[in-house]
Design a protein around this nucleic acid. Sequence first.
DNA 1: AGCCAGGCCAAGC
DNA 2: GCTTGGCATGGC
Length: 210
Amino acid sequence: MQIKETYKKLLDHFGFQKWWPVHTGTDRFLEVSIGAILTQNTNWKNVEKAIENLIKDDVLSWDKLESIDLEKLKELIKPAGFYNQKAVYIKNFVKAVKGLPKERITRDLLLSIKGIGEETADSILLYGLDRPYFVVDAYTKRIFYRLGITKTENISYKKLQKIIQQNIPKDINIYKEFHALLVELGKNYCRKRPLCIKCPLNNSCKKNLK
DNA sequence: AGCCAGGCCAAGC
DNA sequence: GCTTGGCATGGC
């Protein structure tokens, strides 16, 4: 099955996901970035709790995050797990990016920040800054492998990103939507222990376990 | 009651 | 370059 067809099927089945979810009244770029850091290897439900804590304490702003005590920040984001390192990552990010004009914020700059890897950087760029970088995650690798599009689930980030970007239009709205749809499929059907019987890609998947 | 989640870093080969 | 271990909470 071709990549573009996969996108169409998922969109047809799930409908528009309208990612990235952010609260009204906060800086979108900031909230996406903090969410992207907090969701590293973590359930989004837990991230929501952490973000609610930040909003409740009125610290989801560049100035407040820069000045907040590190230990206090750890407490607030605790529900998201790995809170010791994520608090430092957030501090690193804010220090490196605060006050910069957006055109100065490049992928290389983000990757130079300790705690920002490829997926986090691309999530920030795509959903926070509307730049055309396709976000690859564990679901993406798993789904494409099971579909038979890639030969291994351990394909490198760069390789899979390149394959996908070469096979869909360079359109940030498609990039945003496709990744969100892959997450939806990965969460609900193409899980580690998959639910192939009800999967919307069931009849065109090589790894179909029925 | 385990298993798992929208990764990243450091260390070792 | 690729692999491994550590990091932590809460939902199911």
